[in-house]
Amino acid sequence: MSIRHALLALLSEGPKYGLQLRQEFEARTGEVWPLNVGQVYTTLQRLERDSLVESDGAEDGPQTQKGFRITGDGEAELAAWLLTPPDLSSPPRDELVIKVLIAAQLPGVDARQVAQAHRRYLVQLMQEWTRLKEYAADRDLGFGLAVDAELFRLDAVVRWLDAADGRIKRASLERLDADRAPLPKLPRKAVVRP
């Protein structure tokens, strides 16, 4: 999540104070991403250094009373950022994927049971998000979008677990068949009759 660009987006609506930016950021993202006030001011200082925002108010006055506005460069940066896809080309190191991969290869470990433990946890989380959606998503577009994003993300992991479960089941059946198969016949020795 780019706080830098989220703040630029809020400032593209008009000049704002730092504290106000933090409150609006949290409200717009459905309070799903909490932000501390220090992060807001550090980011604003960097934006100002890069000439993407300008501030007014006394340099030595309290920071909360400092107003910020977006510059022309800031507008251009924001427009370019919205259209630039994030880099998703390399798979992330996913702890859950690693656990299931290891379980599937360890003798004496029921990998399908491992997958189920994770599936249960994920579905429980999804139930909690769905309950939030049921109560609040219609009232707040930002919140609805953020909750949907989380539900689709968790859903994708559950679907991967389902696919993994099927794959592990097939692999173990094939191993079982291989174990049951008769030993390959050895070539008969040629008998040379006298």
């Binding site: 399908r112 189920q116 599936r119 249960r120 994920l122 579905v123 429980q124 999804m126 139930q127 998000w129 769905t130 049921e134 539900l151 689709f152 968790l154 859903d155 559950v158 679907r159 389902d162 479960d165």
Partner: peptide
Amino acid sequence: THDAQLASWADRVVFLR
């Protein structure tokens, strides 16, 4: 259902295998 998003509307989810 096989669909976790659908199942997540329920009060309780029972897993069948």
